[in-house]
Nucleic acid binder design. Structure first.
Length: 648
RNA sequence: GCCGGUUUAGCUCAGCAGGUAGAGCAGCUGAUUUGUAAUCAGAAGGUCGCGGGUUCGAUUCCUGCAACCGGCACCA
C-alpha cells in the first residue's frame, strides 16, 4: 500500500499508509485527542473521522472546542436526528432535505396533516430518546442504481429527485444513524450520543416550496436551533427576546409613530411623532444632496401606460403596478395610467426637456419620489416592506468617462450619511454582467472597471457577485449592520446603458454630434419608510436627540411650579427644541416612568427648588440620576446636541 | 401568491365542550400637591375582524373573505 504524507497545524508532518482515517491519525498523535476528536479538515475540506484519506495534504483534527466545525456537525446531525424522529413517529412522512442554516438547521417534510406546536414537543422528546441511545453513525458509498432502487422501495420520491441531481462522477453517500439512513454529503459525528441533548430547541413550522420553486409542491419545514452547550442556547433565546423588544411595529405603536389599517394594507398612516422623524430625516438628506451638487425635482404620481411601455416596466412589472383607469369625457376608451413604481422614466422626461450639452454633465437629478408597488400580500412586513413608499432617489446623467468620479463621490456621501445616522459598518457588493444584457462588452468593461476602481479608493474589502448585475448595467449594493448585528440592504448604485436608449436621452458632445448619456441610478437610504424602521430597531426606539420626536418633556412636581414649567417650555421651543409640558396631577415618579417608557431623551423635573433658583433638574433617558443646571445652561446643552450632525 | 397560525375594550390578554363576555394597564371623574421608572377611589367602556350557513339560540360549530403574524416565493 502506498504512503501519504500529512502535515499538521504545528508545521510537522508524518507519513501514513494511504486510506488511513482521520480517527486513526488523531490516535497516532495522542489517544486523548482521538477521544475528543469530532471531525477533521483536510486541505480545508471538512471530513468525517472515519473517512479514508487517499492523498497527502494538510490535516487538522477538530474537537468540540473548534466552534465552526463543531456547530456545523452538531446542527447537521440534529437535522438527521429530527428527520429520524419524525419518521419514527409518522412513518408515512416523506423526507427531503435538511441543511444547516443560521443558528441551527431546518428539514423539509412532505406530510398531509400540518405539524402543530404540540407535535414539536413530541418530536423533541423523541430526539432526546434517539440521542440517549447513542447510535453509531456509519457511512457507505452506494452506486447510483442501488440508491435509486432503495428509495423506490422506500417510496421516497423527493430523495429520488435528489439522486438525479447529484452530478455524474460524484459519490452517492448514505449515512446511517442506527437503523435510520439518509442520503447525505456529510460530514457527520461518529455517534448521535455526541449531540448536546440540552442545547437544542425546535422553534417553528412553516411552509416552503420544494427546491425553492413556487411551481413545485409546498412542503412543511421545521426549524431548529442548536449550540454546543445549554448556556449558548439560552444566550441565543435571550437575544431573540431582545430583538422582539425592539420590533419597530411594537415600538411604532407604543411611541405613537404610525399605524396601518385594513383599508390600506401596506400604506403607512404617519402620526405626528413618526412624521417628525420622517421630516427631520428628509430635511437632513435634502441638505446633504444639495451640498453634493444634486438638483431636486418632483415628478407625477400617475403616468400613462404609454411611458411605462416605452421604459419596459409595463412588460416586466405590470403585475406589480397599481393601475388607474380613467373615463375621459368624450373618449371612446378608458385611458390606462399607472401609479409610478419608480422614478427613473420620469427623470429622463425632465432631462429630455431642452437640448443638453456635454457641459451640462454630470447632471444630478434628485427626488424624494413617492412610489407605489403592488407587493404580494405575504411579503409585507411593517415599515420594512410596504406598497407605498418614498425613495431618496436620484439619477445622474453623465458620460462614460465620468462614471468613476461619480461613483467615488457617491461613496463618500453614502459613507458620511451612514456614519451620521449611526451606522459605522457597512458592506459593499459588486454585481457584474449577467448572461442576458444590453450594451457592448467594451462598455461593460469600462463600467465594471470604473466601479471597482472607485470602491478601491475607499476600501479593499468588497464582495463580487458575478452575473448578478441588472440587465442594463453593473451595480453596487450597500448593506449596513445594525446594533445587534443584523444586515440591511439600503443603498444602491447602478449603471444603466439601457434606459437612455429606450427613452431617447441624448446630449451634444464636444464634437457637435449627438451622444447617449449614461444614467446612474442611486439611493442611500433606499426608502424612508424602511430606513426609519431600521433606525427604530437599531436604536431600540431611543433615537438620538436630533431625530427624537419629543426631545424634552418638562414635568412639574407640584402644581405651584406649573407657570415656571410653561416658561421653561417656551424657552426650549424658542431655541428650536421640541418640548412639551407635563403639568398633570401625577407624581413625578409616574411622569418619569411614563416618559422613559415613551423614549423621551430628556426630562426636566421642576419643583419649588427649581422655581426659586431659576434652575431645572435634567434627567437623561436611561441614566439613574439627574443634574441641576440653570435654565440657560440646559437650553444651550440640549440645543447643541439637537443640531443635526451635518450642522454641528 | 403559497403553507400554517391569529383576530375578544385604546393596549396586553383571559373566557365560552352553543344560552350575547372578564382582568390589568391606558382613558374619564373625584380625592391627593407629590423630588426622579406605576398615589388611591369611583363610574364607564365591547354588534367578540367582516359576510353566509347550521341551530330555538352562534363570540363559541361549519364555510367564504379580509387583515395581521411566522416562513416560502417575489422584491425593477
Amino acid at each position: 500500500m502506498s504512503q501519504i504524507s500529512l502535515s499538521f497545524p504545528d508545521g510537522n508532518s508524518r507519513d501514513y499508509p494511504a486510506g488511513i482515517t482521520a480517527a486513526e491519525v488523531a490516535e497516532s498523535i495522542a489517544p486523548s485527542l482521538a477521544k475528543r476528536a469530532i471531525s477533521a479538515n483536510l486541505d480545508g475540506r471538512h471530513i468525517d473521522l472515519a473517512w479514508p484519506i487517499a492523498e497527502s495534504g494538510a490535516i487538522t483534527i477538530n474537537t468540540m472546542k473548534d466552534e465552526a466545525p463543531a456547530l456545523e456537525l452538531i446542527r447537521h446531525d440534529f437535522a438527521h436526528v429530527m428527520a429520524r424522529a419524525v419518521q419514527e413517529i409518522w412513518p408515512d412522512v416523506k423526507v427531503t432535505i435538511g441543511p444547516v442554516r443560521d443558528h441551527g438547521w431546518f428539514y423539509d417534510f412532505d406530510r398531509k396533516e400540518p405539524f402543530t406546536p404540540e407535535d414539536l414537543g413530541r418530536i423533541e422528546a423523541k430526539m432526546k430518546e434517539i440521542i440517549a441511545a447513542r447510535d453509531p453513525v456509519r457511512t457507505e458509498i452506494w452506486d447510483r442504481e442501488r440508491a435509486i432502487a432503495h428509495y423506490k422501495g422506500q417510496n421516497e420520491p423527493f430523495k429520488l429527485e435528489l439522486i438525479d441531481r447529484i452530478p455524474e462522477g460524484e459519490d452517492v453517500r448514505m449515512y446511517w444513524h442506527g437503523e435510520w439512513q439518509d442520503l447525505c454529503r456529510g460530514p457527520h459525528l461518529q455517534n448521535t450520543g455526541q449531540l448536546p441533548a440540552d442545547a437544542f430547541r425546535l422553534t417553528h413550522v412553516a411552509g416552503a416550496y420544494w427546491l425553492g420553486d413556487a411551481s413545485r409542491p409546498m412542503l412543511q419545514r421545521i426549524y431548529g436551533v442548536a449550540f454546543r452547550n445549554k448556556a449558548d442556547l439560552k444566550a441565543h433565546l435571550t437575544m431573540l427576546e431582545e430583538a422582539a423588544k425592539r420590533d419597530h411595529r411594537k415600538l411604532g405603536r407604543e411611541m405613537e409613530l404610525f399605524h396601518f389599517q385594513e383599508e390600506a394594507p401596506g400604506m403607512v398612516f404617519w402620526h405626528p411623532n413618526g412624521w417628525t422623524i420622517y421630516r427631520e430625516l428628509e430635511a437632513y438628506m435634502r441638505r446633504r444632496l444639495t451640498r453634493a451638487g444634486y438638483k431636486e425635482i418632483k415628478t407625477p404620481q400617475v403616468v400613462d401606460r404609454i411611458l411605462w411601455e416605452k421604459s419596459g416596466h409595463w412588460e416586466a412589472y405590470r403585475e406589480n403596478m397599481f393601475i388607474v383607469e380613467v373615463d375621459e369625457e368624450g373618449a371612446k376608451e378608458k385611458r390606462t395610467n399607472a401609479l409610478k413604481p419608480m422614478n427613473c422614466p420620469c427623470h429622463v422626461q425632465v432631462y429630455n426637456q431642452g437640448l443638453k450639452s456635454y457641459r451640462d454633465l454630470p447632471l444630478r437629478l434628485a427626488e424624494f419620489g413617492s412610489c407605489h408597488r403592488y407587493e404580494s400580500s405575504g411579503s409585507m412586513h411593517g415599515l420594512m416592506r410596504v406598497r407605498g413608499f418614498v425613495q431618496d432617489d436620484a439619477h445622474i446623467f453623465c458620460t462614460e468617462d465620468q462614471i468613476e468620479a461619480e461613483c467615488a463621490s457617491f461613496l463618500d456621501l453614502l459613507g458620511s450619511v451612514y456614519a451620521d445616522l449611526g451606522f459605522e459598518k457597512f458592506d459593499i457588493k459588486l454585481s457584474t454582467r449577467p448572461e442576458t444584457r444590453v450594451g457592448s462588452d467594451e462598455i461593460w468593461d469600462k463600467a465594471e472597471t470604473a466601479l471597482e476602481a472607485a470602491i478601491l479608493k475607499v476600501r479593499n474589502d468588497f464582495e463580487v457577485d458575478p452575473g448578478e448585475g441588472a440587465f442594463y448595467g453593473p451595480k453596487l449594493d450597500f448593506k449596513l449592520t445594525d446594533a445587534i448585528g443584523r444586515e440591511w440592504q439600503c443603498g444602491t448604485f447602478q449603471v444603466d446603458f439601457n434606459l437612455p436608449v429606450r427613452l431617447d436621452a441624448e446630449y451634444i458632445g464636444e464634437d457637435g454630434g449627438k451622444h447617449r448619456p449614461v444614467m446612474l441610478h442611486r439611493a442611500i437610504l433606499g426608502s424612508f419608510e424602511r430606513f426609519i424602521g431600521i433606525l427604530i430597531e437599531n436604536y431600540s426606539g431611543k433615537l438620538p436627540l436630533w431625530l427624537a420626536p419629543r426631545q424634552v418633556v418638562v414635568a412639574s412636581i407640584v402644581s405651584d411650579a406649573d407657570d415656571y414649567v410653561r416658561r421653561v417650555v417656551d424657552a426650549l421651543r424658542a431655541a428650536g427644541l421640541r418640548a412639551e409640558a407635563d403639568t398633570r396631577n401625577e407624581k413625578i415618579n409616574y411622569k418619569v416612568r411614563e416618559h422613559s417608557v415613551g423614549k423621551v431623551p430628556a426630562i426636566l423635573a421642576i419643583g419649588m427648588k427649581e422655581v426659586e433658583a431659576g434652575t431645572v433638574s435634567l434627567r437623561r433617558l436611561d441614566s439613574q440620576g439627574s443634574r441641576t443646571l440653570s435654565l440657560e445652561e440646559a437650553v444651550a446643552e440640549l440645543s447643541a446636541e439637537a443640531a443635526p450632525p451635518d450642522l454641528r
